[in-house]
């Protein structure tokens, strides 16, 4: 048994090497979102060197999750969106992605957007990149995944949930805004429900995420987790609770 296990492990390792061409690399530390979510993710966080797909029921929630993930990376980030659909820097800044890290690109032809995303994921200059594109095929997403592989960068693919199709993203997240009057009244809170699925995420149930965004991101990430349901609003920091 043990011998065949060892053989299997060797075979898997060599397959992974052949598939990815990154044999021998030390694995990079994943991006930590917030401990309640991290606990459910393999590796204890969002994998670097990978393409992640965010399927948004409404755009605000999708933009928020992308911003929160990117605010946890280092270096400039490139936000690629279709012409006339760009993001607004002051809003991203308020949510933790500093405006001096933001580079915006707008494409008119989807091919240009895909090409730019691939170049961005291959460039060591960036910390991460987002591509806002509803329709793309398996080949295109596979190319993006390969471009990101082995790098410390994270690639995000933001799509409308109604348009989603197959893709080779390592994880897929469905996000929707959460109607939370109390949080809204308190001000400075971002609420959305996130449900990661796909091969990389072992979480089946959705999470309700509330995000306090008025503080600089460096402090935000170090906040202690707030486990369990959150009946009243915690003073600050990200909070994620399993949806009931």
């Amino acid at each position: 048994m043990s011998a065949s296990d060892a053989v299997l492990r060797d075979l898997r390792a060599s397959l992974a090497r052949i598939e990815r061409g990154t044999g021998g690399d030390a694995t990079l530390p994943p991006i930590s979102l917030t401990p309640p979510i991290d606990d459910h993710l393999p590796g204890g966080g969002l994998a670097r060197g990978a393409l992640h797909e965010v399927q948004a029921s409404d755009l605000g929630a999708g933009l928020a999750l992308c911003t929160l993930i990117l605010s946890r990376t280092d270096g400039p980030v490139l936000w690629i969106s279709a012409h006339a659909e760009g993001v607004w820097a002051p809003g991203l800044h308020a949510l933790g992605l500093r405006a001096d890290r933001l580079l915006q690109a707008s494409y008119r032809q989807p091919a240009d957007g895909l090409w730019t995303m691939e170049e961005a994921l291959r460039s060591p200059a960036l910390g991460g990149a987002v591509l806002q594109m509803d329709r793309l095929d398996m080949t295109a997403s596979r190319r993006l995944q390969l471009a990101a592989e082995g790098s410390p960068r994270v690639g995000l693919l933001l799509r409308n949930v109604a348009e989603h199709g197959p893709s080779s993203a390592v994880s897929r997240w469905r996000v929707a805004s959460l109607a939370d009057a109390a949080a809204h009244h308190a001000g400075g809170w971002t609420c959305f429900a996130a449900a990661p699925d796909g091969q990389a995420a072992g979480m089946s149930a959705g999470m309700k995420v509330r995000w306090r965004s008025r503080r600089p991101p460096s402090q935000n990430t170090r906040e202690p987790p707030l486990p369990g349901p959150v009946p009243a609003l915690p003073p600050s920091g990200p909070a994620a609770t399993p949806a009931s």
Binding site: L59, G60, L63, A64, T67, E85, G86, V87, W88, P90, G91, L92, H93, A94, L95, A99, G187, G188, S213, R214, P216
Partner: peptide
């Protein structure tokens, strides 16, 4: 900047 919540788009 960042004092007030602002739209992302």
């Amino acid at each position: 900047w960042g004092q007030e919540m602002r739209p992302l788009r």
